[in-house]
Amino acid sequence: MLTKRIIPCFDVDRGRVVKGVSFVDLRDAGDPVELAKLYNQEGADELVFLDITASSDDRKTVYDMVAATADQVFIPFTVGGGIRSTEDVKIMLELGADKVSINTAAIENPTLIRDAAYRFGSQCIVVAIDAQKVAGTSSDWQVYTHGGREPTGIGVVDWATEVVTQGAGELLVTSMDADGRQDGYDTELLQAINKAVNVPVIASGGAGGPAHMKDALVDGKADAVLAASIFHFGTYSIRQVKAYLADAGVPIRHS
């Protein structure tokens, strides 16, 4: 049976993992390869790296990170941030990334998803959607770009449908309302998107514990859940999360 995926996410600046990873047993908590190995041993099903390097002059550092990870860690990983052209996609895939995640550039360059999916296959094109509830509504979300700073005026369900038509093979859906609050994923948002598209959906934003993950996977019908701080700060290990989900009847890979 196809299992639901548990995906730790890392923010990366100039090839180093940032935003507090606090494992005491790690020699170098900023080393993406060391972290990737650790999460692989713990049973992570995939990894996501989000490159937040501000200067494009420092791209080489993220390239080195992608290559080193691919050389040493044998589970799938996605790289997002700064992917603006099919050439950017090609570089990441050749360095060893399995998928790229495209966000702002998908809105700014309407042919990018189509071109990249045609050239490299839909399976490696993830479109990241940052969604925020429109004030005063209960089930209407708007797409934001530029790390959640710029509203686009585009409805989330319309956009999800559009990018899948263009060739996106997976959606990474972040609720900006829920993000950082550790109060649960936005299951209504996930349901709305799952109703509209037939590609896998990764839920992001709001993870405070395994019960939230179960809600996103079962009620929200997400195919995967992404989380950062609860894993990085050791609040829950991947093993604990998986044990909880398995007990709750969610199909999970045991490793």
């Binding site: 196809l2 299992t3 995926r5 590609v199 195919d223 890979r253």
Partner: peptide, 10 residues
Amino acid sequence: FKVPHMGWNT
């Protein structure tokens, strides 16, 4: 069933 079949299976 979603397509692609993506993830870990037995």
